[in-house]
Computed example of a mutant assay.
Amino acid sequence: MAHTLVGTVTSDSRDKTITVSIVSRETHPLYRKQYTKTRKYTAHDEKNEAKKGDRVQIAQTAPISKTKAYTLVKVIERSHGTVELKEDVNKAYEAEKIGADEIAKAKAATETEKTEDVAGEGEEA
């Protein structure tokens, strides 16, 4: 049986090739401290079916190219969106929030001007 791994697709920009990241927890032999280790594998995706963020299973094969020695077996779970999209949404939200803050400051400034005008009229009388 071929060596199989399960990981997340981090790149699908090349034709028929995906980059898969495998994250594992390891314990240091001397200090007994646990740490995460990320390994990247380049895999062959004949039908270009895997997309960035998908959870996939890859299997070891004979070398296909200089860096590819794995092929895509199956897509286990489709991604629910990418991190870039979430960051764009957060940026848009922050921009709206900043715009709302500017409007609130402008309203507060006009309120203080009205209050100063009313107070100024009272002094003259």
Rank of each mutant, 00 (worst) to 15 (best):
T10D: 06
G120L: 14
A109D: 13
K114P: 01
K37W: 01
G7Q: 06
A69F: 05
T82W: 06
H3N: 13
H3K: 11
A125N: 10
T82E: 14
V6N: 07
P29I: 07
G120S: 15
D45G: 05
T4P: 01
E113N: 09
I98T: 13
S24F: 05
V75L: 05
V6K: 03
A119E: 12
R25V: 13
V75S: 00
T38W: 03
D45T: 08
A50V: 11
E116D: 12
T67L: 12
T112E: 15
A100C: 05
T8L: 05
E121K: 14
S79Q: 05
V83Q: 08
L85G: 05
R32M: 06
V73Q: 03
K51V: 04
V56D: 10
V6H: 02
T19Q: 10
P63G: 02
A119D: 11
V20T: 04
V118T: 12
Y70C: 04
H28W: 01
E123R: 13
A69R: 14
Y35W: 04
K86N: 04
D54G: 09
V83K: 09
Y70T: 04
E26V: 09
T67P: 00
T112G: 03
I58D: 13
D117S: 13
E102G: 02
E94Q: 09
E124Q: 11
Y35E: 03
S21N: 10
H3F: 06
T36M: 06
A69E: 08
K52S: 08
V56I: 08
T115M: 09
Q57K: 15
R14C: 00
H80S: 09
H44W: 14
H44K: 12
